[in-house]
């Protein structure tokens, strides 16, 4: 009885998962170009109000960062873009981004995705694409 229930629940979750992703790219699930632009604007807004992170951006040009990050997100989410900006290592060398700073930026990105109304599974999918970048960013 208990086992049947668990199997049933599991099957429902798995099937539900399949139905939720009818061959849409992550880029489309993020709302395409418009969705990515809104997300980056929300993210910049989060950073602008954050004491721990803002100083990392003090010397950078916001419009340059905005364009670069929009292109980067578009590319990592299988959108119709190619990232042509500097490498993560080049950008972050000399910044000494600590592990805790990186995680805090992840939290600001989650806040920005919440502000955009992006659902948890789509948030997780984007975070999974971005997580491998960490080694090129921290302690540089």
């Amino acid at each position: 009885m208990w086992r049947k229930c668990v199997i049933g629940l599991f099957a429902t979750i798995m099937l539900g998962g399949c139905q939720n992703t009818p061959e849409q790219t992550l880029y489309q699930r993020l709302g395409g170009q418009q969705g990515v632009e809104k997300l980056v604007d929300n993210f910049i807004n989060q950073i602008g109000h954050d004491k721990q992170i803002f100083h990392f951006f003090a010397d950078s040009k916001i419009s340059h960062f905005r364009q670069g990050f929009i292109q980067h997100l578009c590319a990592v989410s299988d959108g119709p873009c190619r990232y042509t900006g500097d490498s993560m290592v080049d950008i972050h060398t000399g910044m000494m981004v600590k592990e805790g700073d990186f995680n805090h930026v992840v939290e600001l990105l989650i806040n920005a995705m919440d502000d955009s109304g992006i659902e948890t599974p789509v948030q997780n999918a984007l975070l999974a694409r971005l997580a491998p970048l960490r080694s090129g960013i921290i302690y540089r």
Binding site: P121, N124, L127, A128
Partner: peptide, 9 residues
Amino acid sequence: HLGALAGYN
């Protein structure tokens, strides 16, 4: 595992 179970962590 991020998003590993039907999109959930």
